[in-house]
Design a protein around this nucleic acid. Structure first.
Length: 847
DNA sequence: CGGATCGAC
DNA sequence: CTATGTCGATCCG
């Protein structure tokens, strides 16, 4: 580390090597010392494109630090004092809300992948090994670590550090099996335990400990496992198991030369029964029991931390690793003592960048973090300094949150340089295919597609596009991704795009509720066959509500207008449009209605474009309809503005004016966009980007009805009571057959959102039927009409801050489950991600 | 919303 | 030769 500072000027350039090398002074006798290791790494690294990029990233961090320091210079003592008062007010609150009543355990398998591989191949036991590949290692055993071989290091460099290193390829299937075995044990202590990856988990054993107090010895007695999975291992296991009876502090796999780390207070064990151990009732004993059982079952060791919250438990498990455990007793002073001299880097969520920034302020330990709390509150974003304050006070989440629904899914691949557009497109398609497959497994559809590219200089770029109708199939995703890719290719033209990685991500999933709702609404829409006459409304005859005619009318008109323009070879990801002028939707709908019957030849016809669908799959049909209603509209606009026919483009069928109307809706203010001059693509795209808040056309019938229901049912609640809880309530719509989000009012009376009349029935089924009928009565105009609702905008102003520090996953755990009344709105919003998302969705509907 | 970044495993 | 893959969160424009 000392020789590092000689590289470049110390204030600017001392981070790169530290990052790649070690900060680990455990180099043992047989290994290498730090200097040697860093030298070797440097020789293998310098001059590489990778290294150049590392330097560049480092400069960026240094600039951030510089910016921060400049800000710091401008702070007056006056400001600082004021901040001090504010922060200390929060400190008092936090202190008062400190909760020491939970017992949280963090279990961490030691060198997991490596340990599994060693277990299964005894030849590896004495050797330095790492798991991964020549290009990247996932983990290494402790022997290899003495040579500086560590996780996240490329194998070829590891080989230079340790020529005898054995690199074992990853075998996730195996690790998954072992992980499952471990989890079976953990579940006995906390059925709601929270796994983190394959090798870690948090447990809340508060309840277990209470029950455990009354348990008879027999329930706490465990027998040594003398059976082994394979014959060849048998002797080994027997040996180590026996030698472990008293302290079981050595691992049969990892540590031949054991050091009795964990048995600080050897207790009198009842060994009256042959080959058995009885564990006590304390938290320590319970956790020893867990580790003992893990080792007996898997021949692998784990480390553990016991503490009043997750953050402390995690840091605790690190304290005596490997194969050890550590407890912070539930006393304020014990917590503060533990935290006092702890380097901030040990704190989960504080990574190398944050460490470096804080170091620039002279902050290395947690107590320093506390001392500088006022300064930090001025320099950093609220989320960041709150986090810092929690850390320095030893506060963290005292309960385990079930991880919510996933928010994105992605796949990415690294490869040797690819620089031809053709290869890039086909690779992109392949990624989309893989991703689509995975999405399908979870039945997910998302609205945002993100393309990730890393060029051969390791510079990473992401490009995203959000479409109105959600995507899930290969073709749908690719249709979006290929455009993003095309834009990037164009952006460097005439040079080739030289990339080493490509990734595709889909996010912006429909919530469970939305999904259910969408499916049901479209089904019920199609099934209510008798009254779909509104689909054939004449433009003028449209129930006087809108002077412009309904959305459907326009679609229909546009379709007719463009009939002749349709060419059969337009698209990649879109169904072909075969003209079918004589479509009778009532009849067609009946066909749809028959769809439950098996073995009947079903032909679906899209109610929007009136095209017969080739697929007889309902989901396909729905997808198509969605696309007809909105998706194509969006894609079309993208295509237009790109003005490029060389790629697999979709064509645009709608007249310019028509599109403009639809995008702007029927809002009065839409006229400000001056239709008469809206012929250029610039104009058109500008409308899209400039007026994102004008009401959009609901993207499908589900959206239409949901939109309506929200207006009628949710907004009054919110404005009258201004209580966020109502939104959450609605989110938990019961699992009734209801296709709509409506809840009965307090007096139990349901009000139709369409005709606004109170309904006699309290049956949701009949109610829905009524709404269906109402909808079909030609009141569709209502749905597309503009209504303005006040929407709340959150203050995200942060101009004074350096910001940019995240807390990682800890952020999802509301600290202590207690309210912090001092927080601003924008803060408290992010607290509950779920409800926040939901609100966000609602807001979008009203913008 | 989109892009970049951080952080964790 | 040869420097991952996947996800969530945060911040900024």
């Amino acid at each position: 580390m000392d020789n590092m500072k000689k590289v470049g000027n110390s204030s600017c350039n001392d981070g790169v090597l530290l990052r790649m090398g070690l900060n680990d002074n455990k180099a043992g006798m047989q290994g290498l010392d730090k200097e040697k290791i860093n030298k070797i790494i440097m020789e293998a690294t310098k001059g590489s494109r990778f290294y150049e990029n590392e330097l560049k990233k480092d400069q960026q961090v240094n600039q951030r630090i510089e910016k921060m320091m400049q800000l710091k210079e401008k702070i007056t003592t006056q400001q600082l004092l004021k901040a001090q008062l504010q922060v200390d007010k929060l400190v008092i609150e936090l202190e008062q809300s400190r909760n020491l009543s939970s017992t949280i355990v963090h279990i961490d398998m030691d060198a997991f992948y490596a340990a599994v591989e060693m277990r299964d191949n005894p030849e590896l036991k004495e050797k330095p090994i790492a798991v991964g590949s020549m290009s990247m290692l996932s983990t290494s055993n402790y022997h290899a670590r003495r040579f500086g071989v560590r996780a996240a290091m490329p194998g070829f460099i590891a080989k230079k550090l340790c020529p005898h290193l054995t690199i074992v390829p990853l075998n996730f299937e195996k690790y998954g099996k072992v992980s499952k075995e471990v989890r079976e044990i953990l579940a006995e202590y906390d059925p709601n335990f929270m796994p983190v990856g394959l090798d870690e988990a948090y447990l809340n054993i508060t309840e277990h400990l209470e029950e455990r107090l009354n348990w008879p010895e027999d329930k706490r007695r465990f027998f040594l496992n003398t059976e082994s999975t394979t014959e060849k291992d048998k002797d080994d296991i027997n040996m180590s198991a026996k030698s472990n009876v008293g302290g079981y502090s050595s691992s049969p796999v990892l540590f031949e030369d054991n050091s009795p780390l964990m048995d600080d207070h050897p207790e009198q064990r009842d060994q009256s029964v042959e080959n058995s151990v009885v564990f006590g009732t304390s938290a320590e004993e319970a956790v020893k029991e867990i580790r003992f059982r893990i080792e007996q079952k898997t021949q692998l060791t784990a480390s553990a931390g016991i503490a009043p919250n997750t953050m402390l438990a995690k840091m605790c498990s690190d304290h005596n690793k490997p194969n050890g455990q550590c407890r912070i007793v539930p006393e304020r002073q014990a917590v503060l003592d533990f935290v006092k001299d702890l380097p901030i880097r040990k704190v989960p969520g504080i990574g190398k960048v944050t460490e470096k920034m804080l170091k620039a302020l002279g902050i290395v330990t947690c107590s320093e973090l506390y001392q500088q709390r006022a300064l930090l509150s001025v320099l950093f974003s609220e989320a960041s300094w709150h986090n810092f304050l929690d850390i320095s006070l030893g506060l963290g989440s005292t309960h385990l949150e079930k991880d919510g629904e996933r928010k994105s899914m992605s796949t990415e691949r690294t490869f040797s340089e690819i620089n031809t557009a053709e290869d890039q497109y086909s690779l992109c398609r392949e990624l989309c295919r893989d991703l689509a497959q995975e999405l399908q497994k979870e039945g997910l559809k998302g609205k945002t597609v993100t393309l990730k590219l890393k060029n051969v200089n390791f510079e990473v770029k992401t490009r995203a596009s959000t479409v109105l109708s959600s995507v899930s199939t290969e073709e749908e995703i690719f249709a979006v991704a290929k455009d993003l890719l095309g834009t990037e290719i164009d952006s460097v033209a005439p040079h080739p795009l030289r990339i080493r990685l490509m990734g595709v991500r889909v996010s912006g999933f429909l919530s469970e509720e939305e999904k259910k709702y969408q499916q049901k609404s479209i089904t019920s829409f199609l099934k209510s066959g008798k009254e779909i006459s509104f689909l054939r409304l004449q433009p003028g005859k449209s129930n006087q509500a809108s002077p412009r005619g309904s959305f459907f009318d326009k679609k229909r008109a546009a379709r007719q207008l463009n009939n002749e323009n349709l060419s059969p070879n337009e698209t990649v990801g879109k169904q072909l449009f075969h003209d079918r002028k004589s479509a009778n939707f009532v009849e067609e709908t009946k066909k749809v209605t028959d769809l439950e019957e098996p073995n009947v030849c079903k032909i679906f016809t899209c109610p929007v474009c009136f095209e017969e669908q080739s697929s007889n799959n309902l989901e396909e049909l729905n997808r198509h309809i969605d696309e007809c209603l909105s998706g194509t509209l969006v894609k079309d606009t993208v295509e237009i503005s790109k003005n490029d026919n060389s790629r697999e483009n979709t064509l645009n069928f709608l007249p310019q004016e028509d599109r403009t109307d639809q995008l702007a809706g029927t809002d009065q203010s839409a006229s400000t966009s001056d239709n008469s001059t809206s012929n250029s693509t610039e104009k058109f795209t500008q409308i899209i980007s400039d007026k994102p808040h004008r009401e959009r056309q609901p993207s499908n019938l589900g959206d239409i009805a949901r939109n309506l229901s929200m207006k009628q049912c949710l907004i009054p609640k919110r404005t009258s009571q201004d209580n966020e809880d109502h939104f959450e309530k609605t989110e938990h719509t019961e699992e009734t057959s209801s296709s709509y989000f409506f809840e009965a009012k307090d007096d139990g009376v349901l009000v139709c959102p369409v005709c606004n009349s109170e309904q006699k029935t309290t049956s949701l089924v009949s109610f829905n039927r009524h709404v269906d009928v109402c909808l079909n009565k030609g009141l569709i105009q209502e749905l597309t009409e503009k209504k303005h609702f006040p929407t709340k905008t959150y203050n995200t102003e942060n101009s004074n801050r350096v910001g940019g520090l995240s807390r990682g996953q800890q952020c999802t755990n509301p600290s202590q489950g207690t309210k912090r009344s001092g927080l601003t709105t924008s803060q408290s919003v992010s607290k509950k991600a779920k409800s926040s998302n939901f609100k966000h969705t609602i807001e979008r509907f009203f913008k």
